[in-house]
């Protein structure tokens, strides 16, 4: 213990308590209260009404659609994330930084625009509009459009978790495996994948959570057809606009629970993920 250290960085008690108070007040106001409000309002009319709200047919179909969209978007972006991370982390090539920046693009784009671009491509007046019409294929205002928009907004999540990690881990283990006679797939399954499993899991969770919670992009492409093209967030909006507040918050509470699960997973995985980055040369000892 070095008391001098603490003394040098020791803020006066008044300042400390003051800052803690301000921080907690700010967070309480902006984070905790809205969270509590969701659950409080959801249960305003009691458990019976709550249960009815979330088991009502349109609500159920919105849940189904949400799960479907996520169920397609997540695996697609997972495969992409793995492929992109492999190419970027294990090889040197020109324009790598450009590629990395491009992968981040969906983050910089407003969700509304994310929906707009697919309307421009597949909507009635879009590039492929007439062709789709001819073949009686509906993308916009139908499920495929929702899936596409969801894929777009969750595009970078897995890749962003994997790329810095794999870059930090380097290629030595893979080289060692190659010299020992492993094939490409054996290398990937036995050496690379186990080294990234926690970050991969976290990326998938983030991707899934965002996929299920997306509102703006999906709102633009969906057409809001009750029971058919509404995801859970859209269903919440419909209920709210009909002044059916308790039901709206009931469905919203499911999404809030999902957010809390995501936060919990992050907490649990964070320590594991930091281990993945661990550098071994730090633990040299004098013993042989």
């Amino acid at each position: 213990m070095r008391p001098r250290t603490d003394a040098a960085r020791h803020d006066p008690a008044l300042l400390r308590y003051g800052l803690i108070f301000v921080a907690l007040l700010f967070l309480g106001l902006f984070v905790v209260l809205p969270l509590i409000a969701v659950f409080a309002q959801a249960l305003e009319k009691g458990w019976g009404a709550y249960w009815a709200a979330i088991t009502e047919p349109d609500a159920l179909s919105s849940i189904r659609l949400t799960l479907l969209a996520a169920g397609i978007a997540v695996p697609l972006n997972l495969v992409f994330g793995l492929a992109a991370a492999w190419a970027i982390a294990e090889f040197q090539f020109r324009g790598k930084n450009v590629l990395i920046t491009l992968i981040d693009l969906p983050f910089a784009v407003s969700p509304v625009i994310a929906g707009l671009i697919y309307v421009l491509m597949f909507g009635a007046q879009g590039w492929f509009g007439p062709w789709l019409n001819q073949h009686d294929i509906k993308i916009i205002f139908a499920v495929p459009g929702i899936v596409l928009a969801t894929v777009f907004v969750t595009f970078p999540f897995v890749a962003r978790e994997l790329i810095p990690l794999m870059q930090a881990q380097g290629t030595e283990e893979e080289e060692a495996a190659l010299v020992l006679g492993a094939s490409g797939w054996q290398l990937f399954w036995r050496v690379t994948l186990p080294n990234i499993k926690w970050s991969l899991l976290y990326g998938v969770i983030l991707c899934a959570a965002r996929a299920m919670g997306e509102f703006g992009a999906v709102s633009v492409v969906s057409g809001h057809i009750r029971g058919e093209t509404n995801t859970m967030p859209l269903h919440v909006e419909i209920l709210y606009n009909e002044y059916n507040f308790a039901a709206a918050f009931a469905v919203a509470s499911l999404l809030a629970l999902l957010a809390l699960v995501t936060l919990g997973a992050k907490r649990l995985l964070e320590w594991k993920m930091r281990q993945d980055y661990a550098d071994f040369t730090a633990t040299e000892g004098a013993e042989g």
Partner: peptide, 29 residues
């Protein structure tokens, strides 16, 4: 290809497979 040459290579920074035990590392090849 390196895998076909049957050479044993020992890296400066060991390059042990961090997610495998000592046994699994040695058995890998």
């Amino acid at each position: 290809r390196t895998g076909e040459r049957r050479v044993g290579f020992v890296f400066q920074h060991y390059a042990l497979f961090r997610n495998m035990t000592v046994f699994e590392n040695i058995a890998f090849g």
